[in-house]
């Protein structure tokens, strides 16, 4: 069996190797696929902090993904139309700068996560799942009815946003940006897990009554995890919108929330590389099986069933030989 340290090293290297190979073989579409997998992995790394360490089964993480997407869409929309963005008495100029967009995406998603988390965390179990789902649907229908920003049709951004010193229209350069962000998020995840906060959060998932009895508030610990989690998923949403140069209400859809959970379960809940492995497999299946049949989700379901029944630790758990008892 393989040590988890090796997996933590090998998985990012493998993900990096795919677009480098594609670059040499001159297959730009493969680079786009790898970028898509990288961004989905980033979104799932975010969810994995709430789900894997905190045990919060959020079926509403598409809210943050969508908010990140719309943060990008709205800012870039105003920039490409040279129209000012008016929020109440304040007027902002739109922007095509990725770092600024990311900052806005992270702040907006974190604030939304604080609000949604503070309300949702009063419940637990299936009620928590349902209330996060309900928030997701609220945002979804709001986006559909928001005609100023395209309503159901969404917003198209004609030119990808810029990053200082890079030409983001070159697929490999945009991949590099996404890959670095993913690595930073993974490092953050590993740091959190080992920190005093991570220890307390991990205990709050397993035995909340114990955490209370030592004088700590499990709900606040989970709320903090939910906010960090939402912020990372929001950042992924901004990148995803930039990848497609398009944002639409489907980024808020509950199917997307579900897919994020599915790819974490496939990769390994609570495992550092679980979301990355899951996202890569998901995109690979989507691409190859999707090319053979429109009903490729059936086969995804078979994979998921196999994992849930026979490999509770996901693919990473299977490789390390440790049946991760997480969640």
């Amino acid at each position: 069996m393989i040590g988890e340290r090796w997996i933590n090293l090998a998985v990012p290297l493998a993900l990096l190797a795919v677009p480098l190979y594609a670059l040499m073989a001159d297959e730009p579409f493969t680079i786009t696929l790898a970028t898509r997998a990288t961004i989905l992995a980033l979104a799932a790394v975010g969810l994995n902090i709430a789900l894997g360490i905190g045990g919060l089964v959020s079926l509403g993480h598409a809210v943050f993904f969508g908010l990140g997407g719309y943060a990008m869409g709205i800012l870039a929309f105003h920039a490409q139309n040279y129209s000012p963005l008016e929020i109440g008495p304040l007027t902002f100029a739109g922007t095509k700068s990725m770092p600024v967009i990311w900052l806005v995406a992270v702040i907006v998603s974190a604030m939304a996560a604080l609000l949604i988390g503070a309300l949702s965390l009063r419940t637990s179990g299936v009620y928590f799942i349902m209330i996060t789902l309900a928030f997701g649907q609220m945002f979804y229908y709001f986006a559909i009815s928001w005609s100023a920003y395209g309503g159901e049709d969404g917003l198209s951004i004609y030119v990808r946003n810029g990053f200082p010193g890079l030409n983001t229209l070159v697929p490999i350069q945009f991949f590099a940006v996404c890959f670095v962000v993913l690595c930073l998020a993974l490092a953050l995840n590993a740091m959190l897990r080992a920190s005093p906060f991570g220890l307390a959060l991990n205990a709050a998932r397993q035995v909340p009554q114990r955490v209370e009895t030592v004088g700590l508030n499990p709900m606040r610990l989970k709320l903090m995890a939910f906010v960090i989690s939402g912020a990372i998923t929001g950042l992924a949403g901004a990148l995803f919108a930039d990848l497609n140069r398009f944002v639409s209400p489907s980024m808020f859809s509950w199917q997307l929330s579900g897919e994020l959970i599915i790819l974490i379960v496939i990769g390994g809940v609570g495992r550092l590389m679980g979301p990355v492995v899951g996202a890569c497999l998901f995109v690979a299946l989507e691409h190859w099986l999707g090319g053979l049949t429109d009903f490729w989700h059936v086969w995804l379901g078979v994979v998921l069933l196999g994992i849930v029944l026979f490999a509770r630790g996901g693919v990473v758990g299977l490789l390390t030989g440790k049946a991760g008892p997480h969640v």
Binding site: P196, F197, A200, V211, V214, G215, L216, L221, M224
Partner: peptide
């Protein structure tokens, strides 16, 4: 976890 509770600060990330 107990020691962390006694210290009263779980917010170091």
């Amino acid at each position: 976890l107990g020691a962390l509770g006694a210290a009263g600060n779980p917010w170091r990330l």
